[in-house]
């Protein structure tokens, strides 16, 4: 589609949608949201980009093949689930790394739950884009 209005609007919108997808990803930690829906939102940004600028432009904007992205996402998720192995707990148990302060006074903690969600985010983004890019390729 070669529309000046769409192309101009897309420049702004794609950035906004991607930021919003990150927001949804992080929000999912305590509220509705999370990796799955955020991955879908991010994929929609690339789809919008593809509609405005063409499939090749979207593919080169993504830099890496989407199928690799999906596999990498599953890999991160699987690894984060297996981190519990080192502390001898059950699979997919939450692991917490205290960065600053202590647990009760609200210091900064990192968790494997977040890593898992990032994995889901990448897996969904990659899988959806693999499907959509494949549909556009000439058979």
């Amino acid at each position: 589609m070669n529309s000046l209005i769409l192309q101009t609007a897309t420049r702004v919108l794609v950035a906004l949608i991607l930021v919003f997808s990150i927001y949804m990803l992080l929000r999912g930690h305590n509220y509705p949201g999370g990796g799955f829906i955020a991955g879908l939102i991010a994929a929609s940004a690339f789809v919008l980009f593809a509609m405005a600028w063409g499939m090749e432009a979207a593919q080169s904007a993504l830099k890496i093949p989407p199928s690799n992205l999906a596999a990498f996402g599953v890999f991160i998720a699987a690894i984060s689930g297996m981190l519990a192995l080192f502390s001898g707990e059950a699979p997919f148990s939450g692991q917490w790394l205290q960065v600053t302060g202590d647990k009760n006074s609200g210091g900064l903690t990192l968790s494997n739950v977040l890593i898992f969600d990032i994995g889901v985010y990448l897996a969904v983004l990659g899988a959806v884009l693999t499907l959509i890019f494949a549909l556009e390729e000439p058979g």
Partner: peptide, 16 residues
């Protein structure tokens, strides 16, 4: 608990 999770963990890791 790890042993019971292995039947699906092994294929997923093999796939990766």
């Amino acid at each position: 608990s790890w042993l019971l999770a292995l039947p699906f963990l092994i294929p997923i890791l093999t796939a990766l």
